[in-house]
Amino acid sequence: MATIIVVTSGKGGVGKTTTSASVSTGLAKRGFKTAVIDFDVGLRNLDLIMGCERRVVYDFVNVIQSEASLKQALIRDKHCENLYILPASQTRDKDALTKEGVGQVLDQLRQDFDYIVCDSPAGIEQGAMMALYFADEAIIVTNPEVSSVRDSDRILGILQAKSQRAVNGSGRVKEHLLITRYSPRRVEAGEMLSVKDVQDLLGVPLIGVVPESESVLQASNSGVPVIHFDKSASGQAYDDVVSRFLGEQKPMRFLEPEKKSFIQRLFGT
């Protein structure tokens, strides 16, 4: 029986798709059979971030409406053999994601997979509600910034009231806070909310901190999830996130500004 993980945030542009791509890749690299589903009907982007945009033939809505089988629609990742991508429809209406339809597809995936990662769209409309409804665990992606923190709090409220677990009274969705685009230098200067501030405000256990990094853009440029960039801080941070998700103890990294060397100081870089 697979575990369903939703990657959500409320606010757009905080790194949900980047996180979905890297977390699903990390799980697959560790040998778990993993599917990652794009719930952003009409604005599909997971395919680009995963680098499989030219191989999309059928999509999630085709499967829901029985126009294609799940097997036809799932795209096998080119880097990891255990990873499959189910792209969103680019042309349909977001209301095509019905509770029954999504439930059936997830039930089918559950037979074969260890983990199902649901990449939620921004907002709190149908796509976002369906992405979180069936979740067993949730990764709340938050930037250390006022609107993102507020929207995350709103999404936490929805998870606790509107998810299937909440509605059936079958326990809680397990919540994990992931802080992304973190700049230790700006936190030190008092210009950015710290990890502790965000944790105090949201009251959710922290699963990781991903520093603001140039490699995230480079990764999306090239269609390779940033977790594959094992020399970059954000790639390493995502790898830690996956380890912690699987229960390993890993100390938080990248919370302090990088110390500049004497030479760097001299040249002011």
Binding site: E145, V146, V149, R150, D153, V187, G190, E191, M192, L193, S194, D197, D200, L201
Partner: peptide, 13 residues
Amino acid sequence: TAVVAKERLQIIL
């Protein structure tokens, strides 16, 4: 400003 942000968020949340 980070302190201001935290205080504002505490109230609105």
